[in-house]
Design a protein around this nucleic acid. Structure first.
Lengths: 349, 349
DNA sequence: CTGTTAGCGCGTTCAA
DNA sequence: TTGAACGCGCTAACAG
């Protein structure tokens, strides 16, 4: 039937096949199937569509991208897709991209700067409409400059860059209001009667960690409360990091602490596990608060007090920013955060 | 300097630009940069590489794909990327794909058959090396046939299909051993002293749900225990579904039940929340077990008894299967499951 | 080992 | 409105 039968490697039908099958020219077939200006006779149109259906034709997106010099994909970089923080953002991003019929390519950096830079280079090869970088930016990390250069080069050749994090690089950014959220959390906790705090933070070069810690400290300072530096420990931005931070705090002694703020929920949950393993009753012996409001936060016992970040909306937003031609690199979209007081921080009488 | 300066739309440098800059032919530049057989003079090679670096050149992957008729991407379909079950599989898949320097395009079906079918059609346009479908297959759903046809068409034109689920379609499949895992869970639970069970299942056409329920029932039957049909409720495969299932069970009355098995952890956790809200103490008043061993399971209180599925490994495995040319469609890779008895099902004396 | 040339599948001019 | 011809960026013969 088809020419493919005698070929060794099977191959998808091309527009050429469709045109031949329909008895029209390549151009007509192209116009009937993918043309923007639908200036094609209804009869021919029908014939082409039928032929395409009969052949089970699917346009080769790569070829289209080459021909029009414009691809229909975006690239999304995350630190760790199994982390609910990033998978929520990804969910929103994929949905928004999907609405515009563009595909999302995902890549994972594992919080490795060099890897991130390398991925940007590789992904540029896809000529995506946009590259979205999620995850905290770093301070004092040399590769940030190279990353910035790479992204600038990409943007200078027609690409769009959107960051979901801090605006430390000159690109459109969805800012997360970490300082504000943490400050508000501190206020509410003081309002609930807490006075003596410890913090499990992340690497100090991690701006998200820094912003949350300083925002929290500011909120306390408004009430004349200070956190002793020795009560701020640093650990990895993961559940295990939270456990280790808690262990360190336990070793330091927690007699003069009534609430531990972990800079994200994943760490907070790890910390809760460690505290409990050490024999502490939560929240009676110790209160814990986190940040992000990942799904698990409401399911742990006691339910975790945290700051809700509309993660899926953030992802959608980033894509809209990326795909909206009007957006320029100086765009900064702040996203609000909401304090959620739950059982892990009961009011102190 | 460059011709782009006078152009309205900025454009990335092409191989042509690099060749000109290096003073060599297009072919030489191609060979030096991307050629497999590195039969190129070291001097020229240097010159080309330098030029590429100077121009910040990145090969256009779409063009490469068109030229060699082979793309460097795979497509991964998941039901819901924010669900830890799927994000874990995705993490493994992305990692494995990455190792082979191929990019992963993600799409989300939201458990909608029509959408899934449509996505397969769209994704075929990318000419991915492989399409990986994760998520339970359905029984008695008409679109399954059309999906199968679509996938067959894709495979007949050189693509590869891998399913992560049940082998109900004639494609390479990573099978999850749901029945076995559930049977083993039932045995262990009986061994722990439980005798009276209820089940929160999913849609009965969802094979994953069916397999887990029937496997569980089989395990009980070995000990002469049966589950009364009225003690099996059905709900959505989500946390809210779990809540609703629990609510239904509560309404039915749980006096004659000492353990509730929810067919996945997400539902089990939702159910725990609902049971607790209804005033039940867990696990004293009621034991609960789930399936999948998502990260949250060990963080809830009481820690959830479940069946561990090596999700990330499953994802990696699916990609290897997809990319290994030796694999044929009849390949079936079973994956073991491990019962994890935790505090939500303490031994009954 | 190098350069020339002909494609890959498709969009889009330009005449007809 | 249609079709022929060219170009997109790149690879893969082919000849030198």
């Amino acid at each position: 039937m088809s020419v493919d039968e005698h070929r060794s490697t099977p191959v998808p039908p091309t527009l050429h096949d469709v045109a031949r099958e329909a008895g029209v020219s390549l151009a007509t077939a192209s116009r009937a199937l993918n043309g923007s200006t639908r200036t094609v006779n209804e009869t021919f149109r029908r014939r082409v569509l039928d032929a395409a259906l009969r052949l089970n034709y699917t346009p080769n997106l790569s070829a289209q991208a080459v021909a029009k010099g414009l691809s229909s994909t975006i690239s999304l970089l995350v630190s760790d897709i199994a982390d609910p923080y990033f998978s929520s953002i990804a969910a929103g991003a994929i949905r928004a991209a999907d609405e515009q019929r563009i595909a999302t390519t995902m890549a994972v950096t594992h919080r490795d700067h060099e890897r991130e830079l390398e991925l940007v280079r590789v992904l540029r090869g896809q000529r995506p409409r946009a590259i979205i970088l999620t995850g905290s930016r770093w301070d004092g990390v040399a590769s940030e400059h190279r990353l910035s250069d790479e992204l600038a080069a990409y943007e200078s050749t027609g690409g769009r860059v959107v960051l979901v994090s801090q605006r430390t690089l000159p690109f459109a950014t969805v800012q997360l209001g970490n300082a504000t959220g943490a400050r508000e959390l501190a206020r509410e906790l003081v309002g609930a009667g807490y006075r003596r705090f410890a913090v499990i933070a992340g690497d100090d070069r991690l701006l998200t960690s820094r912003e949350r810690v300083s925002g929290f400290a500011e909120g306390l300072a408004e009430h004349g409360i200070a956190i002793h530096p020795s009560r701020i420990v640093r650990a990895e931005f993961t559940r295990d990091g939270g456990r280790q931070g808690a262990a360190e705090l336990l070793q330091l002694g927690l007699d003069d602490v009534d609430l531990v703020f972990a800079v994200n929920d994943v760490m907070a949950i790890g910390a809760m596990s460690a505290f409990r393993a050490a024999g502490l009753r939560l929240p009676e012996d110790l209160a814990v608060a986190g940040y992000d409001d990942i799904a698990t936060s409401r399911d742990v016992t006691p339910a975790l007090t945290t700051v809700a970040v509309p993660l899926e909306a953030v992802g959608e937003h980033a894509v809209r920013l990326a795909l909206d031609p009007a957006t320029d690199s100086s765009t900064t979209e702040p996203v609000g955060a909401t304090v959620l007081l739950r059982e892990s921080t009961p009011p102190r009488t």
